[in-house]
Design a protein around this nucleic acid. Structure first.
Lengths: 209, 209
DNA sequence: CAGATAGCTTACCACTGCTAACCCAGAACG
DNA sequence: CGTTCTGGGTTAGCAGTGGTAAGCTATCTG
């Protein structure tokens, strides 16, 4: 595979290298398990190019991985959005979003970490929405529907969305970080528990057995 | 302050340097905001010593910061444990734990990140419990009391503890990471929302207006 | 065919975690 | 008192990192 050298692209076809770098970066990311463990030189070698060539397309190393992971998440989230447009109880749809979110974290832990588990400084004006903003908006949208359909207590949708997002994000984070010092249930069981708790609470309700 | 040189310790007093290194590491950690941004050389310079001297006391750089942060968390958690022994409804105590946990994340974000926001591989047998294990155990303990006092629905304490821990951890993580792409409420408001949702759920209950 | 330029490479910098080898003041021992 | 031993460091350096400045060259354009 990985050629040690590479034919120079023709004029106007520089984007081919860009695409190849993204692919190589993603492959190395999943192999190594973290962006820190993948060096710019390693990416360059994988595509058969020297490292400064990378900096023609991105200003910083981190930008490469952010782009890689955003692409993967956008693909995922459009799939989920399509599945969630359906009918039925709104809270069921919300549960589906939570399950899908956990599935993404489980299948793409490195991408999840890059997108959701590092500081996000203020996004410049006019920049495309971050993965976090998209995910959050999904939750807000469903919650507003739940309010409209009266499936939800009267709570502020944005604050409540933050609480729910935090809960699911926390569960996904525990899975991604493989916290072996804590008895974390299987991902599927954990997300069901989070859904159950978030929807019905833990308090002994007046009308619940 | 930071002396460029330093009197050599007497025999048997090597631990003085060890303590000074821990203090310098913590100070630099809070100044820089992340452990990655603090180099071993910087710590060494701060205490007036050369960098290999550090490796007399720790095998790896990360071990220094883990120790620094564990000390801080142990101090915090014993304070909370004492406050939580009191009487009153169990769920109120649980809420207090959640608030305290968020307060720790808010006041010591760098420490929180080191302790709870990176992969934790299996702890060697006989090692002291990690901060995560201690925090989790706090939640389990309170939950078992809640079950005993019938303040809680009949749920598996460990699975439920994981869900609650995930929720609080997610909220703290959002705060620590300063997710500026998401409308995260103030820490205090966020933790109240998480508590409210976790205790009572969001679903329109049969007996709630 | 001449010049411009996209698409790279060579060479390098300052810095990182970490190690091997050495030095040396003072405690312990004869 | 003199010698040896050793805890508590230092000097020097390795392999690797992200990133940059400057130059080269194949291709396109006038």
């Amino acid at each position: 595979m990985s050629p040690t050298t590479r034919a120079r692209a023709r004029k106007g076809e520089g984007d081919q290298l860009r695409r190849d770098i993204l692919a190589a970066a993603e492959e190395l990311l999943t192999v190594e398990g973290s962006a820190d463990a993948v060096s710019v030189r390693a990416i360059a070698e994988q595509v058969g190019v020297t490292s400064p060539a990378i900096y023609m397309h991105w200003k910083h190393k981190d930008d490469i991985f952010t782009e890689v992971c955003s692409i993967r998440f956008a693909e995922f989230s459009s799939r989920v959005m399509a599945n969630v447009q359906g009918e039925g109880p709104v809270l069921d749809r919300l549960a589906e979003v939570a399950r899908a979110y956990m599935a993404f974290a489980e299948e793409h832990p490195e991408q999840y970490r890059v997108l959701f588990m590092q500081p996000v400084s203020a996004v410049p004006d006019g920049a495309p929405p971050t993965a976090g903003a998209m995910a959050f908006q999904m939750v807000v949208g469903v919650l507003e529907a739940a309010v409209a359909e009266q499936e939800m207590r009267e709570l502020d949708p944005v604050t409540t969305a933050a609480a729910l997002f935090a809960a699911i994000h926390g569960a996904a984070s525990l899975v991604v970080d493989r916290h072996e010092d804590i008895p974390v249930p299987e991902p599927a069981a954990l997300v069901e528990a989070v859904i159950d708790v978030s929807f019905h609470g833990i308090a002994a309700g007046p009308a619940k057995p």
